[in-house]
């Protein structure tokens, strides 16, 4: 019985110590929250909040020593990690801070979440943007990116993913609350590399995974037109039989997609110095 009592005391002491550390830890993390719970910013070392009047606020936060701050807007489905962030928010009827514009710097990672294109799936799709800096415009859901850009769109529920790298570009996201492709349109300037994977019904009716890689000076993706247009020093390769073979030496290539995001056709244009087609079904013998 005495042993139990001692154990209880030790346990209580441990619990008290844990709580103290926890409370201390909480107070040491710089944090800004709106009272509606829509926005929070955490982990900054410098901050500036200015009431601009008419329900508008300007938040400027930054970190030191290369650390990253984190910011979230729940209704907008936006998560940001960056070294610096300057944003304009406006108070809505629910007293939530709605993001109007955000200028991100110091190495950024931004996630924009939408419902899956597959209505049956409970998993969300995400447009993940990495860059040296970026500007988000909430008015048209557009992100302008600069420096070591990587755009990755994943939709596990639909079995689709797309990843593109470039030096700079503009990415237009789908409307908030939409279940369309999270990336409505994207223009990346290069050199650009695009990697697509997906699953479609094969000739035998079984699911067929496919990969497509495109290299070019510039890439324009348009979800509504279901096209990916590569221009300048285009090289396209992949393992989808639809592709027929690897393509290089063309100035322009337009990849047409089906509404399910599968490759429908590839049109080559321009003044090719040399076009190489490797027929996958014939191994290396298709030159």
């Amino acid at each position: 019985m005495k042993l139990h009592h001692t154990t209880l005391l030790i346990s209580l002491a441990g619990l008290t110590a844990t709580l103290a550390v926890s409370q201390s830890g909480q107070t040491k993390i710089p944090e800004i929250k709106d009272k509606a719970g829509n926005m929070w910013v955490r982990g900054y070392s410098r901050m500036r909040i200015e009431n601009l009047g008419s329900g508008k606020y300007k938040f400027t936060v930054s970190t030191s020593d290369g650390k990253k701050l984190k910011a979230t807007w729940a209704k907008e489905n936006i998560d940001i990690e960056s070294g610096g962030l300057e944003c304009l928010v406006v108070l809505d009827k629910t007293k939530a801070y709605r993001l109007q514009t955000a200028t991100m710097s110091g190495g950024i990672v931004a996630n924009f979440v939408r419902a899956s294109a597959n209505a049956q799936s409970k998993e969300n799709q995400t447009a993940n943007i990495r860059a040296a800096s970026a500007e988000y415009n909430g008015g048209n859901d557009t992100v302008t990116v600069r420096g070591n850009v990587t755009l990755t769109r994943t939709d596990p529920g639909a079995g689709q993913s797309m990843s593109a790298t470039g030096a700079s570009g503009t990415i237009q996201l789908s409307e908030q609350g939409s279940s369309a492709n999270a990336v409505k349109a994207a223009t990346l300037n290069g050199p650009v590399k695009l990697t697509m994977t997906g699953v479609r019904p094969g000739d035998d009716g079984k699911p067929l995974k496919y990969n497509l890689t495109g290299l070019a000076d510039r890439m324009v993706f348009n979800d509504a037109a279901r096209t990916i247009v590569f221009t300048g020093n285009v090289r396209i390769s992949g393992d989808d039989p639809t592709l027929g073979g690897d393509i290089s030496g063309v100035n322009s290539a337009t990849v047409k997609l089906t509404k399910d995001g599968e490759i429908e056709s590839i049109d080559l244009e321009g003044d090719p110095g040399r076009t190489v087609v490797q027929d996958k079904r014939k191994g290396d013998g298709g030159r």
Partner: peptide
């Protein structure tokens, strides 16, 4: 409409319409 916590020093104008480290 917002709360700020966890900072060690703060400068503000008297109306509190501008607060900053």
């Amino acid at each position: 409409s917002y709360r700020v916590r966890g900072i060690e020093a703060l400068r503000a104008n008297a109306k509190l319409t501008l607060v900053a480290t």
